[in-house]
């Protein structure tokens, strides 16, 4: 019996979702592996093997101008990207969701106004600008990138939480819970959060993939990950001057970013179609 319902569940997701999920899992897997093992040590320079084109039996994706193995750098870059994106998304959720819930439960109060105006204010600072400010003061580092992207994520989650929670707060079962003497916090945890969870999960996948893009952008302009840590964005920055004679240096990290972001977005879309029955009806 259980098996039947499981296969039924699997079938409810579009095929493309599984495609995205498998690639995402693969990328996570690769980045975990890179913690303990990479084909080559990228801190060791090997000038005589420099700029080997991809397809080489020893260096599958070729080497860069220092003779470092590109495949190894891609693996380590994956780890950096996922770490930054994950931490920044986490920061956004932990701070943004409670803010949004408080704003929604106090809808119409000055407190709601203050929280939402504050949100708009933070929103006026693009992640890049925050990173610029922090870097100008503290110097560049991967932590700055995480903080900048994380701060940017807070109003995103606060806004989406408030919007979704507001529509839940108008439903009768919230009033029923109040009749039963539940306080705002209990209502938020027991009744509101479970009903907006699907929206939050989908938004998390969006912010996660945006985080990967943002990390690569910040590292590209030198505000994010610093050497010797590998980063896709830094690899692209390094490759720029050599693009005319060694385009593979730009292709490998670029395609890695695209595939990762695409896989996560596809997965998020599939998840949304499954979790949001309203959308499911529309597509039927």
């Amino acid at each position: 019996m259980k098996n039947i319902s499981l296969t039924k569940k699997i079938k409810q997701f579009p095929y493309i979702f599984w495609f995205g999920l498998i690639i995402t899992i693969f990328i996570f897997f690769v980045s975990f592996i890179s913690i303990i093992w990479t084909p080559y040590d990228i801190t060791v320079l090997n000038i005589q093997d420099k700029l080997i084109p991809p397809g080489n039996t020893l260096h599958l994706l070729g080497t860069d101008h220092f003779g470092r193995d590109i495949a190894s750098m891609i693996m380590l870059g994956a780890k950096t990207s996922l770490l930054v994106a994950f931490t920044a998304t986490f920061l956004g959720i932990v701070l943004g969701v409670p803010l949004g819930l408080v704003a929604a439960s106090r809808a119409g109060d000055p407190l709601d106004d203050i929280i939402m105006r504050g949100n708009d204010l933070i929103f006026a600072f693009p992640a890049l600008v925050i990173a610029i400010l922090i870097t100008a003061i503290l110097g560049p580092s991967i932590t700055n990138a995480i903080i900048a992207i994380g701060i940017f994520n807070i109003p995103v989650f606060a806004r989406i939480t408030r919007g979704a929670a507001l529509s839940v707060f108008t439903l009768d079962f919230i009033l029923a819970a109040r009749v039963c003497g539940k306080n705002h916090i209990q209502i938020c945890i027991e009744h509101v959060l479970p009903n907006i969870m699907s929206i939050l999960i989908v938004q998390s996948t969006i912010q996660f993939s945006l985080g990967i893009l943002a990390e690569s952008g910040l590292s590209y302009v030198g505000l994010g990950t610093q050497p010797p840590m590998a980063s896709w964005g830094r690899m692209l920055a390094d490759s720029q001057t050599m693009i005319s004679f060694a385009p593979h240096l730009a292709l490998a990290p670029g395609i890695s970013i695209i595939v990762t972001v695409l896989a996560i977005n596809i997965m998020g879309d599939g998840l949304r179609d499954y979790l949001d029955p309203k959308l499911r009806k529309k597509s039927a």
Binding site: L175, A176, V179, H191, N195
Partner: peptide, 19 residues
């Protein structure tokens, strides 16, 4: 005191947490 009064709403669909 509050436990002495309860309510039934009009809309049978939004009266319960679907989860």
């Amino acid at each position: 005191v509050r436990s002495r009064i309860q309510i039934v709403f009009q809309d049978p669909f939004s009266s319960f947490n679907p989860r």
